[in-house]
Write a protein that binds this DNA or RNA. Structure first.
Lengths: 146, 146
DNA sequence: TGTGATTGGTTTCATTATGAAACCTTGTGC
DNA sequence: GCACAAGGTTTCATAATGAAACCAATCACA
């Protein structure tokens, strides 16, 4: 197998992104971090992932600059894992996945946690893609320029 | 190892989404399909993925209702793989990954293909997350409601 | 219409990644 | 100081991945 093929040098930003966060657990760790979880044990319990896998994912997320380790906020000698600006910027990726999943992966009648505006408590809007002039763009309305 | 742990029953839509399209290749196949590629050989050449892997990914994408097979548009006896509505709806996921990658994974001076509005040829806007009342929401402005 | 190349896979096999459990080390509560 | 918890690391079995070989159907075209 030589090696899992690396996409880090791809010219396509989607490929590069997937190379960094495209595995099964990384984005779920980021999601948990966005929900305020910071400790190894919290991630482990929440995700149900094996500890060795979690340790390896946390390490690469730190190396990639998506999480950083810092002294625990509660004063213990342990460490907190917290999102960097680069990690927080994954918000739209997380929201896009969430909204797609809500639309297509839940049966009618089945409920799931809802992302709400913290201030008003009301659900956030669906993401929309707009042209420079403000027009709403659908799946067939874009192309790539090299 | 028993089995790669399945997230399909998770209550979190992000987890379910990743269970379906969270592997290394699926989203790249979807991206290629969005660019108009339809044939096995086109995907294989574009992605450089092993044929057995590609075949298995295409199969699960079809099973998941993200792609569908139909008689080739060019009249040959081969089949086309084309996106369904569910697959086209992954646009925001693809765009979010693309924009994050552009912002964080490319050095200054390094260029990459740019997503433009097909009509005007101008780059599309960055995705934005808005509250129901229209306010722009940042990473810390949301929470989950169960 | 026969024949060689192309397309679209499947099979085989070696290697890597994943996961569960056991183990270990340091910190914490008392 | 002692028991227990937190946070990992190691070990080992199994599953997923990838490269290459192989194969059947289809196509190009003389």
């Amino acid at each position: 197998m030589v090696k899992r093929t690396s996409l880090e040098d791809a010219s396509c930003p989607i490929a590069r992104s997937l190379d960094v966060i495209g595995d099964w657990w990384s984005l779920l760790i980021v999601r948990d971090a966005m929900l305020g979880r910071t400790r190894f044990g919290e991630f482990q319990k929440s995700l149900g992932v094996a500890k060795n896998i979690l340790a390896s994912r946390l390490k690469t997320l730190v190396e990639e600059g998506i999480l950083e380790q810092r002294a625990a906020a509660d004063g213990s000698a342990y460490q907190d894992y917290v999102l960097t600006a680069k990690g927080r910027d994954l918000q739209h990726v997380a929201v896009a996945l969430r909204q797609w999943g809500e639309r297509h992966l839940f049966d009618k009648g089945e409920t799931c946690p809802i992302l709400v505006d913290a201030k008003s408590g009301k659900p956030v809007k669906q993401l929309e893609l707009h042209a420079a002039d403000g027009r709403l763009l659908g799946p067939g309305d874009t192309r790539l320029k090299y």
